[in-house]
Design a protein around this nucleic acid. Structure first.
Lengths: 142, 142
DNA sequence: AACAATAATTAGAATAATTCTTGATTGGGT
DNA sequence: ACCCAATCAAGAATTATTCTAATTATTGTT
């Protein structure tokens, strides 16, 4: 017996610590869920998936873990109108396009070399700390 | 006596109908509040102000009126994270900058001639129906 | 290894914005 | 004046999220 193989599912090894945040079992599982299926789930969707591997996890813990990871800059929150917050492990600066036909949320990158201040008439002296760009529309199938 | 002067406050005359929506007394009052003080109030803030002139108005009515005006494209909803929706009568395509020091929300216009698709790597074929750009930051006072 | 101190987790209660339901009121058209 | 549809008001219901308090896990220390 060479390997302990504690869990055969793990295609991804999550470190014990990320960005100064201790990655507990719950946080690892939640982070794994976010990076393995990048479909911008809500806290409740994460909760339902997390129960497969951690049957005793609570929704409050899912909220706590997501919040901790957001605070440490490990993941980002995504908002559409006032719908439930969604979570995204993509740390590139990017926006989101919500396809109203399919429900799919696409990450939308900036074109290379463009900066928001080239495009927007910001108040003089404004220092931007956070950006959220959300688009809604359709992708017609020809 | 020339004028009936039914209400001395009204610097603004609101028409009986806008964009196909019949402007009832409640809707007129709410719309007037939005255009007279463009500080992106929440429904509850609108409610409190509306009571000055319509003491019997209910919060549900404020929500109904705001929703009706949003549906008819007379005003826009503005969202920061999952905070209460805010309302804005500025129909130009624009974003919002929330100054975390003062709490003030500034309208942010696009620079002339720029289009979002110049800047963003949209999914091929995407047809945008709605855009929300929200920025958070500070404006340092030197 | 035992211990204390700290951090994380859990379950359920509490909160807050918004929506829904129902009944009353209003307003325009005949 | 009367009818019909639209609007409004009041309060209940809903829902995502946060809070509270008690338990469990982890870390550092002897």
């Amino acid at each position: 017996m060479v390997s302990k193989a504690p869990d055969s599912r793990s295609a991804q090894e999550i470190p014990e610590e990320i960005a100064g945040l201790r990655m507990t079992r719950q946080r690892q599982e939640i982070y794994r869920i976010l990076i393995e299926q990048r479909n911008h789930p809500t806290a409740n969707e994460v909760f339902m998936r997390a129960k497969d591997h951690l049957p005793n996890i609570s929704l409050a813990t899912v909220y706590n873990c997501l919040e901790a990871m957001v605070q440490h800059g490990i993941i980002r929150q995504v908002h559409f109108e006032r719908e439930s917050s969604r979570y995204c492990p993509n740390l590139r600066e990017h926006g989101h396009f919500h396809d109203a036909s399919t429900g799919v949320i696409h990450d939308v990158d900036f074109k290379p070399g463009v900066s928001l201040s080239d495009v927007l008439d910001l108040p003089p002296g404004a220092v931007i700390e956070d950006i959220e760009i959300t688009l809604r529309g359709k992708i017609p199938t020809p």
